[in-house]
Design a protein around this nucleic acid. Sequence first.
DNA 1: CGGTTGTTTGAATCCCGTCAACTGACGTGG
DNA 2: CCACGTCAGTTGACGGGATTCAAACAACCG
Lengths: 232, 232
Amino acid sequence: MAGIDRSLVRALPLFNKLSDSELDDLLAQASLRRFAVGEAVFEQGAAATHFFLLLHGRLKVTQVTADGQQIIVRVVHPGDIFGFAKALQRQDYPGTPTAAAESVVICWPTEVWDLFVEKNPHLAVNAMRTIGERLQEAHTRIREMATEEVERRVAHAVLRLIKQAGKIESAGIRIDFPISRQDIAEMTGTTLHTVSRILSAWETKGLVQGGRQKLLVRDATALRLLAEGSAD
Amino acid sequence: MAGIDRSLVRALPLFNKLSDSELDDLLAQASLRRFAVGEAVFEQGAAATHFFLLLHGRLKVTQVTADGQQIIVRVVHPGDIFGFAKALQRQDYPGTPTAAAESVVICWPTEVWDLFVEKNPHLAVNAMRTIGERLQEAHTRIREMATEEVERRVAHAVLRLIKQAGKIESAGIRIDFPISRQDIAEMTGTTLHTVSRILSAWETKGLVQGGRQKLLVRDATALRLLAEGSAD
DNA sequence: CGGTTGTTTGAATCCCGTCAACTGACGTGG
DNA sequence: CCACGTCAGTTGACGGGATTCAAACAACCG
């Protein structure tokens, strides 16, 4: 392991209170791994031996039910830490993160988490906030699934995606990684057929522009109106 | 404030690593409050000034949507801490905890959370685990709402309730606080009408026994089968 | 004993999932 | 470079589970 260059992570808010030498200490414990599209970083239910930071790419975290149905729990974006089950006193990973695009990940053994935290309490606070945000996100999704009809849920999901992974283009905002109708269906608790119908309808209304594993939002404001459920 | 007696909380796992004097120090900062049925401990969106521990009773945590629909995010049971938004770096409370039964709550100002944690790192670890569990619970619910039909979701909700608030009686396991069909509907993302129909059907099959704000599970095993979605 | 709150049940409606068939894009190998 | 298999997406028809609308009933409370 030739050591990970500090510059790769220096800009991350997670580390902005660390000195260069402290950061180097942490990186000395870490290793870098690369994942091709479709590869999993780890498997749901496996023993939690490492925790991770996504440097580059995009991961879809899925859970499968006993009867084989799959849902996407969340999407991991560059700069996010994930798989820190041990910090939550869990022995195994709750989901499976799969590379939606070519991805690069930093891995630390779970044993160094304590050191990780001790070196800089700021990291612990940060981790706490991260989990808090995720919990709130989860509650938001529960509320949406409970009270909103499919079209609004899809609208919310798409808005969330362009917020977290939106790349501005001349024609609108593009979701900056390959995403299928099936993926959106698994994020919103519906079927790819229904998602396809909805996106087609939006396309004829000029709200979005689709494509194979592609989605471009042309009118985010109108989408937002739809999501907030104002009159149709 | 006459001081809170140590014996009230001594048995809680949360505090089992604290010495009597440390515990007394913490309790000296706290105050005790009592809530009648229907009263709210705090309101969704209000500034987070305190965090809490439920000593006795039962709280339903609700969130309301912009258009006035309500869902029950979770139920707080005796011994649970809640409202520690500040620990997650949040300025306001995400939901409203309402007393479903006469309840007694210990309150600490948020400022003492740091002291709280510093006194015993074990508390921080414990809090982390608690949040981790809640996050996992939330994901489980999302998965259920996404993939399961209503009857199974209701079955899961009822099973969760008897696990967390079940009192064994000769005829079966009773949910030990007043809970309405409406409540169950808000926990499962459906309507009270549908819940009523489902519970009626279960009653004729001998699985449960209903009543006004009451529910007794007579055959938990059969319910579990239903929830796991084995043949119908 | 009215009024309020919670529950039950029926009938009509409709959203959405399922089933099914087809189209188009991509890439790989001959 | 074209043929073919695979994968992603589209679209229609149909059925059913769940919501909605509506009305009556039962339990609790002051």
